[in-house]
């Protein structure tokens, strides 16, 4: 069985080249997803880089990237395919005007088929398999999950009027979930699974350094350390890695060289996003080593 990657180290190296630092666990999961052709379900706290992993996968492979953002009420028409009804109607009228006879079979051809992300991936001619990111699957309804089974299991989509489309090159599917609800066992059974942890402080610093190259090492170290300790406070929404990156970018934009209390207070909105959390963090600033006197 050959896939786009030689081994796990190759995954890490090529992700590194597109500025995504994958640890061994995530690299193994991505390697298996690409090699075994099974969908990969990524779970983890918000902001640990689930969506970014999908994008990096496409970039590392040089593959087309298709993203399907899930939301409540998402239907087959928006995910798989839809018939272009207005165009069919027009074809009937034209046929009438020209006096040609149209069969039903003439109206349900690929000409009138509107491809949506999943069918688009299945019909991708190759040679590189496209990467499909089904983002935040937990937001979609249960029915939508069930609808994905055929695609996830066999990389195929059935259009009753036309028949079954099977992928020439099986797309690499990455699903992400924020665990706002439990996914069905049948869906999980079809997927590989990886739970992304918050990275260790040093790993987090590496990631931020990669994303904000203009930041100084001291600033990045202090900022990731601060975010790591804020995460241990009792917050509604703990800041993830995405927030740390945003924050360091903000600090760099403001021309901060080393982190002092005034800067922290000024830019706290990039790290914590609710008024209650802001209060909590402000109160804890002294304990976190940013005393009033220092600023």
């Amino acid at each position: 069985m050959t896939g786009p990657f030689a081994d796990v180290a190759d995954v890490q190296a090529r992700f590194d080249a597109v500025d995504y630092l994958a640890d061994e666990g995530l690299a193994t999961a991505l390697f298996l997803a690409a090699t075994l052709g099974q969908p990969l379900l990524l779970e983890g706290e918000p902001g640990v880089g689930k969506t970014a992993a999908g994008k990096a996968m496409a970039a590392a492979m040089g593959a087309p990237f298709v993203r399907l953002q899930c939301y409540e009420g998402l239907t087959a028409g928006e995910a798989l395919y839809e018939w272009n009804y207005q165009r069919q109607l027009l074809a009937i009228r034209l046929g009438e005007a020209h006096g040609t006879h149209l069969d039903e079979a003439d109206l349900f051809t690929e000409e009138f088929l509107l491809e949506r992300p999943i069918l688009q991936c299945v019909r991708h001619p190759g040679p590189v398999a496209p990467v499909l990111l089904i983002d935040e699957i937990d937001r979609a309804d249960d029915e939508f999950e069930a609808m994905l089974f055929e695609f996830l299991g066999e990389s195929a989509v059935t259009v009753p009027e036309l028949g079954t489309f099977t992928a020439a090159v099986a797309p690499i599917v990455i699903l992400t979930s924020n665990r706002s609800r439990e996914l069905h066992d049948a869906l999980k059974r079809r997927c590989l699974y990886h739970w992304i942890e918050y990275p260790t402080p040093s790993h987090a610093a590496d990631i931020v350094r990669r994303n904000v190259p203009s930041g100084s090492d001291a600033l990045i170290g202090a900022a990731t350390d601060f975010v790591g300790r804020v995460r241990d406070l009792d917050l509604d929404k703990a800041p993830g890695l995405a927030e740390a990156i945003d924050w360091v970018s903000a600090l760099v934009t403001l021309g901060t060289a080393d982190l002092v209390r005034a800067d922290v207070v000024r830019t706290l909105g990039a790290v914590v996003k609710t008024p209650d959390d802001l209060d909590t963090v402000r109160e804890a600033l002294d304990d976190l080593g940013y005393r009033e006197a220092a600023g």
Binding site: G25, T28, A29, L32, D185, R189, Y193
Partner: peptide, 24 residues
């Protein structure tokens, strides 16, 4: 299939293979 594809050389690699494929 994952073991066949990966040929793990240390327990850490085997750990991640097992965790990715067996746990959901």
């Amino acid at each position: 299939r994952a073991i066949d594809a990966c040929m793990p050389t240390n327990t850490s690699a085997l750990y991640w293979l097992a965790r990715t494929t067996l746990i959901d």
